[in-house]
Write a protein that binds this DNA or RNA. Structure first.
Length: 814
RNA sequence: GCGAGCGUGGCGGAACUGGUAGACGCGCAGGAUUUAGGAUCCUGUGGGGUGACCCGUCCGGGUUCGAGUCCCGGCGCUCGUACCA
């Protein structure tokens, strides 16, 4: 027997990496593709540490799908890029004292090396980085489009300010009221910032989620978006203030409990507070407002804190009862939701109950549950809003809660005290960042003309290469310190004017990158109309559920806005979205702070990229993630070795077995069916298991029929692409295995000739029989009664009934 | 607190619409080969008795001829969210 080379991953992988590049294997014909399939994955943020196993797991899973679709005959476009702007890069740059513009290309080079090495089917000719001038030019263009539609506006907003780092912090950088980096106590600062009116789109963003034709998304992601948008139905009710001209509007989802509103609470920032506060209470109110303002944003909102508050001294009139009720301020009422004021119904709201108990306010029952009367005492808030009936509510007594909601809203509307209303929890998107490392917001302030967008032909507003990019005490972006950049002339009147110094949020960079990929390199337009029509919406998007809300929602919003402006002809960018699972290590999510990050390079060195990919896809269900333990990696490697040996066998005419046994033939077709279905459903772990079963069966009978082995190689190709190419070539093919046609199965051949049927007596399995696959009950019963163990258990018993599940089970009920 | 998901051998995990629980892999044990180690191959592998028997899918009930799967009530873990009126 001739000496055959064993499987040497390092050489093979290098060979095919080169070949794919030389032959442009992974570059589809973007302009002419007939069956375009846009296979998108979430582009990475190029950190200094490099890609870790979690990243690779996600990319491999998406790549497997893309390769599968390609072999099904689609023209697959699988681009990759780098989300390289943002506070993470900037903070890291500050920490190591290197300019981000110098750091980022290094990180990108390292990521590119790793991504190439893992064998992704990436269209490298369309790679992009959000930090490229030619990219962020169009990010700014998007801002201008939204501005022109009235969707970008400025208002005062509150930010977290760290006096130690002298910088604005994101909410997640504030831990227990302190800066995560230096530990200083974080304060609130009020700054003028740019916002996008995403709330204008709340209804559409919500409704489309229920349109399966436009959106086939993981149910968990859909639910997360629905909760985030947070539609609620209720009423706005106006309360007159005693002795003032003013009325206070509140939003409530429980207008049925209006008769139980025994006090009102305003957010400390509510604009009416100063006007209605009595002189006696003014000091206490001012002190309370000052304390509330000093807290950071997170601890103001988070936690089941003790309720605090002070009375304003003013009284309001409950429009239903005519009673005068006290008006308080308390920080459990938030200015950014609803109207910033509530009617407090302590009998039927837990928070109001806690507040009323602490401060000795009246608690009135206005809903009685089953078995309760109007005067059953309330030990806690009664919040059931379906079964109860109204009490102490005048003419509305006896109504159920849903009935009462409608009737009271009618009453409010006729009396002019309020209206039915829908409210969303979603708030407008603040896109200003008082930082350096981002695209400058393309706005110029002119004393005469006001804020003017930079004309599109003057974009980009370049981010200047400044050395002192650190934020300082002022709370103003570092760009403001550079006069030559800061001062400019007004695009409309030519007068001396100033540039906006805030940069935009990284979520804006990533809210449109999928539009750019097909058109990357075009310097006269953000995205080409023809290419966009051909390739979008995205056919498949795979990414982490940590972006279930913000990134995906912002992308949808930007797409809708661009459609409304006539730049796109669809409004949902991702036809299909699947969330992948999380790789955990030692029972915890991989993260630098836990110190359990695994870098893939050493594993690839040792085992090869193909083995590593197969292992990652095998260790658990892709959409649930799994436990990274390097102990199991030898299994997938042994699998590839065995396939390699079968290929060797198939190419050796002497040792080949010409005829395929019937049971092997059945297995072959069953496996083709299972692998095809599993890949479509992203059930990669079971697809690999099926392939292993086939390999075991083939080795068992020393069968290496070339067509069969060829199809085995094709089916391993999505997981182990370099390996499969090499095997395919050894089998005598000149073309790429990825240009071959995915194996078809014959349903008739997936059916086994004889099947094993379980025989139960009284529901307990007592034996098995082997019968023809189309055997009827009578045949099976005869065979079953002939079984010794079955006969013994039937002895002396009366069979009352027989359950027959064809091909599976026979149960004698005794 | 609320929302979602999950709980199966020593381990990662299989099990379609309720129908032989533990596919596939790791590990482990025994054997073959080898000067030895490694690698490879074969066999076995849920637990207990070890005879044709019993017990087993987090716990407790229920429906059913039959429950990992369905229903009710607990416990535990993970993720998301954070006073949303």
């Amino acid at each position: 027997m001739p000496e055959t080379p064993s499987y040497q991953p390092t050489e093979i992988e290098a060979k095919w990496r080169d070949r794919w590049r030389e032959r442009r294997t992974n570059e589809p014909d973007l302009g002419g593709a007939e069956r375009p399939f846009y296979n998108l994955m979430m582009f990475p943020y190029p950190s200094a540490e490099g890609l870790h196993v979690g990243n690779l797991f996600a990319f491999t899973g998406a790549d497997v799908f893309g390769r599968f679709k390609r072999m099904q005959g689609f023209d697959v476009f699988e681009p990759i890029g780098f989300d390289a702007f943002g506070i993470h890069s900037e903070n890291y740059a500050i920490k190591v004292g290197t300019h981000p513009a110098e750091l980022i290309p290094r990180n990108i080079a390292n990521f590119t090396r790793q991504l190439t090495r893992m064998g992704g089917m990436f269209s490298w000719e369309h790679v992009l980085s959000t930090t490229d001038r030619e990219y962020y030019r169009w990010t700014q263009w998007i801002f201008v489009q939204l501005f022109k539609q009235g969707l970008a506006y400025k208002k005062k907003g509150v930010v977290n300010w760290c006096p130690g780092c002298k910088t604005v912090l994101a909410n997640e950088q504030v831990i227990a009221g302190a800066c995560e980096r230096c530990g200083s106590v974080v304060e609130q600062r009020v700054l003028e910032q740019w916002y996008f009116r995403i709330t204008d789109y709340a209804g559409r963003l919500l409704e489309n989620l229920d349109d399966p034709a436009a959106m086939d998304w993981s149910p968990s992601t859909v639910l997360a978006q629905k909760n985030w948008i947070g539609r609620s139905q209720g009423a706005e009710i106006r309360f007159a203030v005693e002795g003032h001209d003013a009325t206070i509007a509140v939003y409530t989802t429980r207008p049925d409990t209006l008769f139980g509103a025994t006090f009102m609470v305003l957010a400390p920032e509510h604009p009416l507070v100063a006007q209605i506060t009595t002189d006696a209470q003014r000091d206490a109110v001012e002190r309370y407002r000052g304390d509330a303002a000093a807290k950071d944003l997170v601890s103001r909102k988070v936690g089941d804190k003790e309720k605090t508050g002070v009375p304003t001294g003013a009284m309001a009139i409950n429009p239903a009862t005519g009673d005068a009720i006290p008006i308080w301020i308390a920080d459990y009422v938030l200015m950014d939701y609803g109207t910033g004021a509530i009617m407090a119904v302590p009998g039927h709201d837990e928070r109001d109950f806690a507040f009323a108990t602490k401060f000795g306010m009246a608690i009135t029952r206005v809903v009685a549950g089953e078995g309760e009367s109007a005067d059953t005492p309330l030990d806690e808030a009664f919040v059931d809003n379906i079964a109860g009936r109204l009490v102490h509510s005048g003419a509305f007594d006896g109504l159920t809660v849903p009935e009462a909601k409608a009737r009271i809203i009618d009453w409010l509307e006729t009396e002019g005290h309020g209206t039915g209303q829908v409210q969303f929890r979603l708030y407008d998107w603040c896109i200003s960042r008082q930082r350096y490392w981002g695209p400058p917001i393309p706005i110029i302030y002119c004393d005469g003309c006001g804020p003017v967008p930079v004309p599109e032909d003057q974009l980009p507003v370049e981010l200047p290469q400044i050395e002192d990019f650190r934020p300082d005490d002022s709370g103003i972006s570092p760009l403001a310190r550079h006069e030559e950049w800061y001062f400019t002339s007004c695009p409309s009147c030519g007068a001396r004017a100033r540039r906006e110094t805030d940069v935009s949020d990284t979520f804006l960079d990533s809210a449109w990158y999928f539009l750019r990929y097909p058109s990357s390199g075009m310097d006269d337009r953000p995205f080409d109309a023809d290419l966009t029509r051909r390739w979008l919406p995205v056919a498949s998007y795979i990414g982490g559920n940590e972006h279930a809300v913000l990134h995906l929602l912002y992308s949808r919003f930007v797409t809708m806005a661009l459609k409304d402006a006539g730049h796109l002809d669809f409004e949902e960018p991702f036809r299909k979205f699947r969330a992948h699972g999380l790789i955990v290590k030692d029972g915890a999510k991989m993260s630098k702070s836990r110190g359990n990050v695994v870098i893939p390079d050493e594993y690839i060195d040792k085992w090869g990229a193909d083995t590593f990919r197969t292992y990652l896809m095998f260790l658990g269900p892709f959409q649930e993630g799994g436990d990274f333990r390097d102990a199991g990696i030898s299994g997938p490697r042994r699998f590839l070795d065995k396939v390699w040996d079968l290929v060797t066998l198939a190419t050796d005419p002497d040792s080949r077995d010409g005829e395929i046994r019937r049971d092997v033939l059945t297995k072959w077709h069953q496996v083709k069916q299972r692998v095809s279905e599993d890949l479509e459903a992203l059930h990669y772990n079971t697809a690999i298991a099926a392939l292993m079963e086939l390999v075991n069966a083939l080795r068992d009978c020393q069968c290496a029929e070339p067509k069969l082995i060829g199809e085995l190689v094709q089916m391993t190709a999505p997981f182990a692409p370099h390996f499969a190419e090499e095997c395919w070539e050894r089998l005598g093919h000149d073309d790429s295995v990825f240009d071959s046609t995915w194996p078809a199965f014959d349903p008739a051949l997936t059916i086994e000739e004889t099947v094993t049927v379980a025989v139960q007596v009284g529901g307990k399995t007592r034996g098995t029989i082997s019968v023809a696959n189309d055997a009827d009950q009578a045949t099976a019963e005869v065979a079953a009664r002939a079984d010794e163990a079955v006969a013994r258990h039937l002895d002396g018993k009366t069979v009352r009934k027989v359950i027959w599940v064809p091909g599976r089970l026979l149960n004698f009920v005794v």
